[in-house]
Design a protein around this nucleic acid. Sequence first.
RNA 1: CGGAGCGUAGCGCAGCCUGGUAGCGCACUUGCUUCGGGAGCAAGGGGUCGGAGGUUCGAAUCCUCUCGCUCCGACCA
Length: 510
Amino acid sequence: MSKRALSISREQSFPEWYQAAVRDGDMAETSPVRGCMIIKPWGWGVWERIQAELDARIKDTGHENCYFPLFIPMSFIAKEAEHVEGFAKEMAVVTHHRLKNEGGKLVVDPQAKLEEPLIVRPTSETIIGDAFQRWIKSYRDLPLLINQWANVVRWEMRTRLFLRTAEFLWQEGHTAHADRDDAMAETLKMLEVYRAFAEDVLAMPVIAGEKPANERFPGADNTYSIEAMMQDGKALQAGTSHYLGTHFAQAQNIQFQNEQGQLTYCHTTSWGVSTRLIGGVIMTHGDDDGLRIPPRIAPHQIVIVPMLRDKPEDKELIDFCAALEKDLKAQGVRVLVDAKPIKSAEKRWNWVRRGAPVIVEIGGRDASAGNVTFMRRDKLREGDKVASHTKARADFVAGVQQLLDGIQAALYAEAKARLDGNILTGIKTFDELAAYFGTVENDDEGGAFKGWARVAWSRPEGDKLEAIADRLKALKLTIRNAPLDQTEISGACLFTGDTAREYVLIGRAY
RNA sequence: CGGAGCGUAGCGCAGCCUGGUAGCGCACUUGCUUCGGGAGCAAGGGGUCGGAGGUUCGAAUCCUCUCGCUCCGACCA
């Protein structure tokens, strides 16, 4: 058995493996503030790549970036009834604006109480809606397409790095439209942007679909999501897009005069993805040697480790590496030469854990022969041995883009096979569903990988749906979404026995 | 907020039952050796044993309270 770069395997305990992967991969750590995280340079670099790639796509679809305040007057949140109810339990509230020194102790100055408490934004529908209400007067102002990159706070009970933190970073798009069709088209367009982004950039295959009524965003008419399958078979909601109808428009008086001069409520949408995506990337691609970052979001796509020996020959090595770095950069590749005075073997394994897509190791013989020795992080081992490849320098440089594309594609293919191969179809009754998923007492104790089930249902709402959700909850299951991509359906609803209307995906979730 | 478990060096842990004021592995520092690869030897540095009280001549160890973390549940991107 060869040694693995992480001290715990996915098999042993997936949650513990996740924590080790995040920590040893230098992505993030917990902070002195409960539930918040410190994102370290390597993790931040990944987020910057995600931002850059997604921001370009958001702008390509006609949206403009802007920035709204972190603080929202409490009365704003109260305007949309469902919205308040959905978020009330997890809001951070600012009530004072001054401290004072009392007998050497710093205390909140009761004199400095705010007239109206401020909420630290959990999302920005209300404060952006307030601006929309002033900005929109005419049908000529529509559609209004806005996006912002921001941090938000939701005071969560239980937190996990990247997956659920009290403060997280995201982008939130907010748009206003003249009618339902236009707003719905926007909602679905952005869902598609997310799907393509997740698959093309994160190499994370997802299923785009509509959330059942009980999983809707507070205040939305329709909520859509992209759902990704993690390596433990659980679903991760990786992005959401909401059609908000006229709920917020009515609550906040977002109206325009149409071509006939009539005052009309706007139809609004909102959509977002967060730093949770990074957790998704980790749980999609990570292995027992740590992270495997897809080349398109890797801060350094290629890390060059010179095998320094603290001798005069080192200079030749460093020169060779610098020249290689220059050539690779000319190919548009993000390269780092790691010449830190640390043992080469140590550096190699650090980059393995961080998941740099390609790790190049240059020794004296490589330098004089003009060769490049490298490892692909996606296919690190062959059997028990680390798979090291050697190429002539010129060939390596010429083929580098192809190499990176190949890694990106291989990571996607691996995850795609897992997703496609683990959606069970053909389940017709609730008993079969229960038998398949079983009552796993303890998910983390090697609960067998189950993936998801695709079942037919009649799309009930209200009490009927609540009852179904409760039955599923007993099995720790939730309805993830109804895929947009529906095949022809026949037969009966698994839950009600009524005529089925569509397929939904069911699984355990993060 | 309920249930379970855990807080001892950066990480992983032992010691606790049967009190006598800390230890192991990895990591870190220095030196020598080694050198196509997760090296060896030697010498070092680092801990108010989560915190506060209490019992005791003496507490990591026993008692009480408290804070935090992890997992499960409720909630959620």
